[in-house]
Design a binder for these strands. Structure first.
Lengths: 200, 200, 200, 200
DNA sequence: AAATAACCGAGACGGTACGTCAAGTCTTGAG
DNA sequence: CTCAAGACTTGACGTACCGTCTCGGTTATTT
């Protein structure tokens, strides 16, 4: 939530030469590319500068450090992609949402989780910002579920879904270390989510 | 895999002066202390050397790098503390296990998660070792649950518990960023775990 | 060479808004102040801009670089202060001139010498300009000596004085690193200058 | 006067790996080469590191900054080269010494003078060290003169020579900006030095 | 009066170098 | 062969200035 301005970028004043928005794009693009190539730890500000063609000072003028930069880059990339409208039955809706979420987390949020771990210790506010990004998708999902299957759900079921599904997917990817393939999604939907949602 | 030879320690040779086991303890103690003080990212090998009184050489002779060292330190600290025997009812057993797990993860595993993120990118084998440590507790918990409430559980319920409970606790601590207090544990037990375990 | 157009200022065009002479003063004043405060090396264009309230552009429009700027500032400050008319005897005249020169060099020219060293390597023309400033005082002194004591001097004595006195004073301040106090001036006059001037 | 250890180098301890004296030589050689090539101002620590093949940290472990480094390099190069024994007459002795000094200052000490200007402002102790180096030659010269022409000199003449000759040469090179050619040396000897030395 | 042209502040920009920190390797002397 | 100490290379850090380049806006002269 918060204002529309947030996200770590420093305020560009009115006076003086305005910031070159092309630099913004180049910096964030380079950050994203490097993030997926080498991961959060191995990503260096110097590499971002080199790849983007921007000077280090230009980056530091916008973001105070690596964590903030990565957060901004991730936020820009994933503009809360709305989960696609799904099929008929409750199972179909839940399955569709879960599969989308599994893909989304596996592909995009892993890099951000590294930034989150670093930021947690150093800057509580920054950690909060990253959590906001991470949970943006979860909230979008909640809404989507309510919209599509409101009548078939017990009250609070959507919230429960938004709590349980991302947790299990993140755990799968990070701790268990195995991919969220179709079989896992099936298991997740049939053995865990649907029982919870129906019963509640 | 799963041999008795622990996680990352390099083989000590037979000839020459034997390794000083006091150095082992000092190194791991210092690592643990620094890990909780400053977190995984800010923990430096140089600080471990300084704090433990060991030379950097002595550390690198045992562990090839920071991630391995931290893994060894964490492994030593948490010798799969057996969850304390619990009360009567199924709910009491589950609640007891969950509360113990929440405490255990919050206090101990957070540092290891940082190491896991780093290690994942750099060394798949190392990531595997860390995952093994992380899941040691989960497995111990599964066993404990089966022992204490075997007759009241559906087959596979213990496995399910070991899959869901840690996932939600980790998610709570890392992504949501709020503490696993008593209220959360209650919610977790009554709204999620018990329904799943009973029904399955 | 030796034109009336001063040291390093770029030609202001005829068309358009004329240059604000108040900016000139502010820039040179700030330069002089910083020169005496922090010395030539530590003096930065950015500090001059900040102190004078002028934009960097405004400074660079006038002077191509630090050395030129400092030269202009020093030139403005020391408008060849005429040595004060002295007493009766030859010794009184020489002593008066030497004391003035010692004060002048110690207080004013030290900063310029730093600029001179830098400029020498980078821009021979600039070095020439600085030398011109430095020797302006020496020439003025020559004239003064001739005016006041022409009949008592051998031919060429004034030139000799202008060659020897500044050299010894600069050497004293920079290389020896001790102040040009009264005792030193006495020594310089009685043991070196007067013997040379009388005999020649 | 000055222990044998001094000169800005930090104390190498007894324990641990000893400093690589090859690094010392490489660093000082590179410093000298760059000093003559580009001058004091343009000499960068990074260039010294690159040229010498030493890491920047290796340089900073030995010298706290550029001025100290240059001072050490210059000190090593000019081990108070004794002026060569000269001819017969007093004039021949003085001329020989003066010519040697003119060469010595022109070729070697100019770089150090830049370091001196910088160091003066920043570190009085460092400035003192540089002055010591600069005056080492002057003192050697005094001794040489006394040795070679003691009987023909008034008392204090050698000191006077060591005061006047370097001052005029430095002034010629730096302030006047013209070379110390044979004609200048002749002028210096015949018109200034000999009259002073004979009369005193 | 309008157009033109230079001025001025502010500050973004690509660079270069700074001085520091930590990583991981290597080299001593002592045990 | 181990250990403590510390030198060494490498690479990145975040900062300071450099000199150049837009911006919006302000005087002046020229049409």
């Amino acid at each position: 939530m918060g204002t529309s301005e947030s996200g770590g970028m420093t305020r560009p004043s009115v006076l003086g030469r305005p910031r070159d928005s092309g630099r913004d794009l180049a910096i964030l693009d380079a950050t994203l590319a490097l993030l997926t190539e080498v991961g959060y730890e191995q990503l260096s500000m110097e590499a971002v500068a080199g790849r983007s063609g921007a000077a280090k000072t230009t980056i530091y003028r916008r973001y105070p450090g690596k964590a903030t930069l990565v957060a901004a880059a991730v936020e820009r990339r994933a503009p809360a992609k709305p989960p696609q409208p799904a099929g008929e039955s409750l199972r179909e809706v839940v399955h569709s949402l879960t599969a989308w979420l599994a893909r989304s987390i596996s592909e995009q949020d892993v890099g951000l989780l590294g930034a989150l771990f670093t930021g947690m210790r150093n800057d509580a506010q920054l950690a909060q910002a990253m959590r906001r990004i991470l949970r943006r998708d979860e909230n979008a999902m909640t809404d989507s579920l309510v919209q599509q299957a409101a009548e078939r759900l017990a009250p609070g079921a959507a919230t429960l879904f938004a709590e349980v599904a991302p947790a299990l997917i993140v755990h799968r990817v990070v701790v268990v270390g195995e991919p969220c393939d179709a079989a896992f999604v099936e298991h997740l939907v049939d053995d865990i989510l649907l029982p919870l949602l129906r019963r509640t």
